[in-house]
Design a protein around this nucleic acid. Structure first.
Lengths: 343, 343
DNA sequence: CTGTTAGCGCATTCAG
DNA sequence: CTGAATGCGCTAACAG
């Protein structure tokens, strides 16, 4: 295969006996240029498949139409949904998306940021790792004039626009629903103390309990670290075998709820009826598992679109001052696992 | 926020009273440069946070360290696994990955290719859409000297290296296992006729049947178009209510198998025992559904790594002549749904 | 060991 | 309406 040298503006100019600058302007239909010249140049370019050298254009304009996107984990239903939305929106606006993952490690996140900055993205969309507390690696973007937007998992240490899920309200509705269905001793398998989303969901849980004058006990609240199925299983076992067993579980995420369900089924409890279970995130697994798992949908796709739209706006307006926060509303999806308690 | 103008080589040179080229060479520790000068320049650069302008570097070297990756659908367990592997491998080698999706539409695939080419990726990894038959939009990359690798869903119309799943063997093992377990009237819910993976799996199914001298009937083979749960449900219903019902289903993918399971459970069939079910792809849902769905793991993560590794090799060797095909082996994951048939 | 020079491809200012 | 000239930031061939 012969690598044909690419046609440049200079080639066109020489061939047509005009100057490079005229050729350049003609191609973008500059008002100064005669219609005839424009037609001439455009036809030649078309016929010879002229494609501008974008490396040169971008260098000249110092922008790339590339946007960086970093998530903790790519293989994760919620995040892949967000990415999908972000990419679709970016495509509409002529941007490409550079995707990377931190594996929830600060170290990896910093590396990802560095290589993204190196490859000169025009802006960054990030959902931070569990380990990230401050945002020095992020402010590097800002100081180079590149806007950053945080979504879903955020830190308040860095003043950027944010797009979040309304975790508080989602949790509030979920727990209120369990109460409506007659459950009164509701345990909560929460996430890490230092993660904002986990905190918000916990607060929503607390508020729902107190608004309905329900019993609360510290012993019913367990912190998951890995947010795994195993933790769900283990905590469910611990609580149910304890001397003050709950009659429902509100779980930080569907995966944890799955562990709870597996334990409960294995131990012979009836779901729902005897024990209610509520997840969070509404993954595919929620509709597949048996009994169907009630959960809270987070509209990841919409979140991706919203975040990307916002970022592109900031990029195009050279706006580094905006610090708004947008909350995406959730939706309670009621399936079987949370239905009426048998008295 | 003040946008500080970035420090350039010229600034360093002027400040240190040396020439730009010396500064440039010093920073990359060129052997020609005096140790002292190197130290001097490096220290100054360090102290003043010099960062090369990569837009300029890339322009000069005409490469970007960006790699394009196009899949039919991002929100899809298998593909997100591949992407994850590809990104991890790319990161190791200092490359970034531009991700896009075609939604299985040729039109979208062409647009994605165009914007990737525009943003000057160094190479392309692609799993083509169901609609893609020829590869003109792909050969554009080749003719610009940028290697292309096809993975998983491929077309033979374009001569590039390929990384595929051994669909034939995977299907062969899966169906042989069903036969071992005592099932003898095995239906196959296959994918589209024109999609290579579907064809390979079908062939594996045929071969397993004939090698074991099992009955084959055209009526037991149904083509899914959308590859949806609904199709699984509908075809299962149609076949089981027909006058020659099968005693097992080998499905093109887990989602279709899920539909089959839902129908069978609803209609009162016992799985396994009365009817066996086998999926393909080994998604998360396979281990969550009840009964646990036997399936064929495709090692998406490994496929992503392998494809990316190969592509980077081609890029670095300027190799556009390589047309090897690599097959990733599958692994049969036996769960409950395919176990022994009751005589 | 170091500086000078040239140029990558394009956009743009300034002069006609 | 068009062209010449300049420079973006960096690399590399060439000359000392």
């Amino acid at each position: 295969m012969i690598e044909k040298r690419k046609l440049t503006l200079k080639d066109i100019a020489k061939e047509l006996g005009i100057s490079v600058s005229t050729a350049s302007r003609a191609l973008k239909e500059h008002p100064d240029i005669a219609k005839d010249t424009i037609r001439l140049v455009k036809e030649y370019a078309e016929a010879h498949h002229y494609v501008p050298n974008f490396l040169a254009v971008n260098f000249r304009k110092s922008r790339t139409f590339n946007i960086g996107l970093i998530v903790p984990e790519l293989v994760h239903h919620f995040f892949s949904t967000v990415i999908s939305g972000a990419i679709d929106e970016a495509k509409k606006c002529g941007y490409n998306v550079l995707v990377s993952q931190s594996n929830d490690l600060l170290k990896d996140e910093i590396v990802a940021c560095r290589t993204m900055l190196a490859s000169s993205v025009d802006g960054l969309l990030i959902s931070i790792s569990n380990e990230t507390l401050e945002g020095d690696h992020l402010s590097d973007f800002i100081s180079e004039g590149k806007p950053v937007i945080q979504f879903d998992k955020i830190t308040d240490q860095l003043d950027t626009p944010k797009v979040t899920v309304d975790d508080f309200e989602g949790a509030y509705h979920a727990v209120s629903h369990l109460i409506d269905q007659g459950y009164g001793r509701i345990a909560h398998l929460r996430g890490r103390e230092n993660v904002k989303n986990a905190k918000e969901r916990f607060e929503g849980y607390r508020k729902a309990l107190s608004d309905h004058e329900m019993e609360f006990s510290d012993n019913w609240v367990k912190s998951c670290i890995a947010i795994s199925e195993q933790e769900g299983f283990d905590f469910a076992k611990e609580l149910m075998e304890g001397n003050n067993p709950p009659d429902a579980f509100f779980c930080i995420t569907d995966l944890v709820a799955l562990g709870v369900i597996k334990y409960l089924k294995g131990a012979g409890y009836q779901i729902p009826g005897q024990v209610g279970v509520m997840g969070f995130s509404n993954w595919k697994l929620a509709e597949v598992v048996s009994p169907g798992l009630s959960s809270v949908d987070q509209f990841g796709y919409e979140m991706g679109i919203k975040s990307m739209k916002l970022l592109i706006e900031l990029i195009q307006n050279h706006d580094l001052e905006n610090h708004e926060t947008f909350e995406i509303k959730t939706k309670l999806i009621v399936r079987e696992s949370s239905l009426k308690r048998q008295k």
